[in-house]
Write a protein that binds this DNA or RNA. Structure first.
Length: 240
DNA sequence: GCGACAG
DNA sequence: ATCTTGTCGC
C-alpha cells in the first residue's frame, strides 16, 4: 500500500473538520513543491479525473496513461470509494488526492508526467490539487483547470488554439490562460510539482487535440464518467 | 456587508 | 462536480 502522508483531514466527521488547520497545512506543504523541471524523458503521460454523483457520497477516480509520442492508450485504472471529504473552495486536494492515489496504485505502467484536472500553483496558497497530488506521488504534474480560481490575465487572450497569456496574482506569474480550442472557454494552466510554468504550457500545447481539453485529461474525464455509469469497471476501495 | 469561489 | 433539450455555429 502506497504511503499517503499529506491527505489525512483528521478523520473527524465533516461537521467538525478544522478547515483553518488544513489551510495552514497547505501553506507548509507548498514550501516543498518543486517549481523547476525535475523530470526525465517523457515516454508515458497520464490524465486524471474524478467523477461524482449529485447526492451519492461516492466518487469514481480514473487515470489514463498514454505513450508519447503517438498518444496510444497503454494503461488505465478506475476506483470507486466513499467521498473522503466535502468539496471546499481551495481545499480540493483533500477530497481528490486520496481516490486518485488509489487509482495510481492500480496502474501497471507508471507515467513520467500527469495532467491534473484543477489548479496547480494558481491557488491562494500556491498549493492546488496538482501540487498536492504531485507531492504525494513524487510525480511531475501539471494543473489544467477549466475555470479561474485566482489571478488575472496579463494581456488579452487570442482565439486561436494554443494561444496563451500569463496569469498574474500578487505580482507573481502563477501560470497561463490557454486557449485549448478556438471558440471555447480557455484553460488555466499552472505548474503542479517538478515542472516549470513554461514546460507546463509546452506540454499542454503538445497534448491538445481537436477538443477543448488536452487528450489525456479529456479521456480521463470520459473514463471516470463511464465508470460512474457502470459502463467501465472500477475497483472498490475503502475510505481515504 | 458584498462579491468571488478549482471540482 | 451534476441535473438536462434544444440550439446556434463552423
Amino acid at each position: 500500500m502506497m504511503r499517503r502522508d499529506f491527505c489525512d483531514p483528521g478523520g473527524a466527521p465533516t461537521a467538525q473538520v478544522d478547515f483553518a488547520a488544513l489551510r495552514r497545512k497547505q501553506e507548509e506543504l507548498a514550501a516543498r513543491v518543486v517549481l523547476q523541471d525535475r523530470l526525465g524523458p517523457v515516454r508515458l503521460v497520464a490524465g486524471t479525473d474524478l467523477s461524482a454523483g449529485p447526492y451519492a457520497p461516492t466518487v469514481w477516480a480514473s487515470v489514463v496513461v498514454f505513450a508519447w509520442p503517438g498518444l496510444e492508450l497503454v494503461d488505465s485504472a478506475s476506483v470507486v470509494c466513499e467521498d473522503p471529504f466535502p468539496y471546499r473552495t481551495g481545499l480540493l486536494g483533500f477530497r481528490e488526492v486520496p481516490p486518485l492515489v488509489s487509482a495510481f496504485e492500480r496502474l501497471s505502467r507508471w507515467p513520467d508526467l500527469a495532467i491534473v484536472d484543477g489548479q496547480g500553483l494558481a491557488h491562494p496558497r500556491r498549493f492546488g490539487l496538482a501540487c498536492h497530488l504531485g507531492l504525494e506521488l513524487d510525480l511531475p504534474t501539471i494543473g489544467c483547470a477549466k475555470s479561474r480560481l485566482v489571478g488575472e490575465p496579463g494581456d488579452p487572450l487570442g482565439d486561436t488554439a494554443g494561444a496563451a497569456v500569463p496569469m498574474l496574482d500578487a505580482g507573481e506569474r502563477i501560470g497561463y490562460v490557454v486557449r485549448g480550442r478556438a471558440g471555447c472557454k480557455p484553460l488555466w494552466v499552472s505548474p503542479g510539482h517538478r515542472v516549470s510554468a513554461e514546460l507546463a504550457l509546452e506540454w499542454v500545447r503538445l497534448l491538445l487535440g481537436p477538443y477543448r481539453l488536452p487528450i489525456p485529461q479529456r479521456e480521463a474525464h470520459r473514463l471516470a464518467n463511464r465508470a460512474r455509469r457502470g459502463e467501465s469497471p472500477a475497483t472498490r476501495v475503502n475510505g481515504p
